[in-house]
C-alpha cells in the first residue's frame, strides 16, 4: 500500500469528507480517485453496510455505505454525494460519503490519539483526531479495519 508521507515536512496529505454531519479524514495515498455517484446495483444477502456494486470504467467495484458501517445515519444519495475509490488488497472498493470538502496536509504532530470516551464501533475504526485551521476537529479513519469484514464480526462477538 502506498503512503504519501512528506518526510521533510513530516505531514500526511489527507482527503476530508463528511458522513452524517461529522468530519472524517483518509490518507490520500490509498485513494485512487473521487467520483460522482452514478448507478449502484444492490447485492442480495450482502451485509447491510454494502450499498451494492458499481461500474467504474468497465471494472466492478464494491460500494460500502460509510454511514451504516460506522453505525450512524445511512448515506442518502443526492448531488453532493461522492464515492472515494480505494485500492485495498489488489481490489477496488468504493466508499460512499455524504460529501467531500477538501484535500489538506496534516502535520503528524497535530494528530492526537482518539479520546477515551469514544466507545464501540467508532473507537475501533478511528486511528486519530486532528484540529483543522477553522478549529473544527476531524477523525482519521483506519482503512484496514474499516474494509476488513472480520473486524465487524469480532466487534459483534465483543459486544455479546
Amino acid at each position: 500500500m502506498i503512503s504519501i508521507e512528506n518526510t521533510e515536512q513530516n505531514s500526511i496529505l489527507t482527503v476530508i469528507f463528511v458522513v452524517d454531519d461529522i468530519l472524517f479524514g483518509l490518507d490520500a495515498g490509498i485513494i485512487q480517485e473521487v467520483v460522482q455517484v452514478k448507478k449502484i446495483t444492490p447485492v442480495r444477502q450482502a451485509p447491510p453496510y454494502i450499498a451494492g456494486v458499481m461500474n467504474l470504467r468497465g471494472r466492478v467495484v464494491t460500494v460500502i455505505d460509510l454511514g451504516t458501517r460506522l453505525e450512524m445515519q445511512q448515506v442518502e444519495i443526492n448531488d453532493q454525494c461522492r464515492i472515494l475509490i480505494v485500492e485495498w488488497k489488489q481490489e477496488y472498493i468504493g466508499v460512499l460519503v455524504n460529501s467531500v470538502s477538501e484535500v489538506i496536509q496534516v502535520e503528524k504532530s497535530d494528530i492526537k490519539s482518539s479520546p477515551g470516551n469514544v466507545k464501540g464501533v467508532q473507537q475501533m475504526f478511528i486511528s486519530g483526531v486532528f484540529k483543522r485551521l477553522d478549529q473544527t476537529h476531524a477523525c482519521l479513519l483506519d482503512i484496514d479495519k474499516l474494509l476488513d469484514p472480520e473486524s465487524r464480526e469480532n466487534e459483534k462477538d465483543r459486544v455479546e
Binding site: 504519501i4 496529505l13 482527503v15 480517485e33 473521487v34 467520483v35 460522482q36 484535500v103
Partner: peptide
C-alpha cells in the same frame, strides 16, 4: 465537475 477534477488532480499530483 471541475471541482471534482481539481480534487482528483491534487491526489494524482501527490501520488
Amino acid at each position: 465537475q471541475t471541482n471534482l477534477l481539481a480534487l482528483n488532480a491534487t491526489i494524482e499530483a501527490a501520488r
